[in-house]
């Protein structure tokens, strides 16, 4: 069976916010990828940004400096 790993996950109110963070992270060379919004965070579907926990500070700074609206930043165990 697969092992879970600790991940940083950013959730959003809209798909447009997720697209914006992906662009920002790509531009700044911050690692990560878009995933299905984890069910343990919300059953409401949507997409989330998932990154290694080492990127948390960089992601937080990118969000603040870009004045990007997001839902929340989480650290949770995931299979992906």
């Amino acid at each position: 069976m697969r092992e879970q790993q600790l991940r940083t996950v950013v959730t959003f109110h809209t798909t447009a916010e997720a697209m914006a963070l992906e662009q920002i992270c790509k531009h700044r060379g911050i690692g990560g990828k878009l995933i299905s919004a984890p069910r343990q965070l919300s059953a409401d579907c949507g997409i989330a940004w998932c990154a290694p926990v080492e990127e948390t500070a960089a992601i937080r700074a990118a969000i603040e400096e870009s004045v990007l609206e997001i839902d929340r930043i989480h650290e949770i165990m995931l299979y992906v």
Binding site: I35, S36, A37, P38, R39, C45, Y79, V80
Partner: peptide, 25 residues
């Protein structure tokens, strides 16, 4: 009991298979 979104993401990321997870509206 693997969350459906993670299964779909594994199918996409490791097997290049596109499915739909979640609540399907």
């Amino acid at each position: 009991d693997i969350p459906s979104g993670e299964v779909a993401d594994i199918l996409s990321g490791e097997f290049s298979i596109a499915t739909r997870a979640g609540a399907h509206c």
